[in-house]
């Protein structure tokens, strides 16, 4: 303990160690994310698949109901987030699976990287890819369905960032959990969609609210809290269980 400090305080050196550890984890996570993004931008495996899939689903929705109807504006948020959730599964399936050939995952795990930085790095890469798919889908959605989505752009961007981080974190965790399983592509959606329900409800409610010309009402703002709580809780759980999921 630092001399002169009261007994209940965290000593300065402990706080400094924690800060250094957090910074090191973040730096390592960014390295992993940059590696994944470099591979992805070179091969465009999941980006092309997820983007094409999202656009096909948006096209198919137009046959399910009249795309010019006023009702579409009220359910626009729901349509979009379903598309993002489906496209996300394609991104997450590739996240850890691309490390399987040549024992790359074992090499990463035996490197000085911590398991938590590997998991968060994978989540960051999926987050960037999914945001890219969402940006393209949103533009296509605006054109196909004559939707003015840019009325409240900053709030919409905040909702997209918060919700996409939640989806990416869960996707990275369960992508890691299912990477060695038979029927990996089937197992991942079965596991993550029920878990994503609170996040999707919140994102849909907020997006529908933001598509209208009126500012968000207080009861709609509660959904922002759900998104923040979801992100904090599941990021904390992912960090706490990273060693268990990846290493042990």
């Amino acid at each position: 303990m630092t001399p002169g400090c009261c007994t209940g305080c965290t000593p300065n050196w402990v706080a400094r160690e924690h800060r250094l550890f957090a910074m090191r984890t973040l730096r390592q996570a960014i390295s992993v994310a940059r590696k994944d993004l470099a591979i992805e931008f070179r091969t465009k495996e999941s980006l092309n698949a997820a983007g094409a899939f999202a656009i096909v689903i948006l096209l198919l929705f137009s046959f399910a109901f009249d795309p010019a109807a006023e009702a579409v504006r009220e359910i626009g948020g729901g349509l979009l987030w379903l598309v993002f959730a489906f496209a996300g599964a394609l991104v997450f399936n590739r996240g850890f699976a691309r490390e399987l050939p040549n024992e790359c995952l074992d090499a990463l795990l035996s490197s000085p990287l911590s398991a938590s930085s590997l998991l968060i790095g994978k989540a960051m890469a999926s987050f960037v890819l999914l945001l890219g798919v969402e940006a393209v889908s949103l533009a296509v959605f605006g054109i196909f369905y004559d939707m003015r989505w840019w009325i409240q752009p900053w709030q919409l961007a905040a909702v997209f960032v918060l919700a996409t981080w939640g989806i990416a974190t869960l996707g990275a965790v369960f992508g890691a959990l299912t990477v060695n399983l038979r029927l990996r592509e089937l197992m991942l959606p079965i596991i993550i969609y029920p878990l994503l329900i609170p996040l999707l409800i919140a994102a849909i409610e907020l997006t529908n609210g933001l598509f209208s010309a009126e500012p968000l009402k207080p009861d709609q703002l509660l959904w922002g809290r759900v998104l923040i709580v979801f992100d904090i809780v599941f990021t904390a759980l992912a960090l706490a269980l990273a060693e268990t999921i990846l290493v042990n």
């Binding site: 869960l170 965790v173 369960f174 959990l177 060695n180 596991i191 029920p194 878990l195 329900i197 609170p198 409800i201 919140a202 409610e205 009861d219 509660l222 959904w223 759900v226 709580v229 979801f230 809780v233 599941f234 759980l237 269980l241 268990t244 999921i245 042990n248």
Partner: peptide, 27 residues
Amino acid sequence: QRARLSAALCIFGCVDVVIVWKSIEWF
């Protein structure tokens, strides 16, 4: 491996159930 992954899913599942409960209550 089965035990480890099941335990992780059980923890995530139980936490999610609490969030679902509270969030749909407002809904």
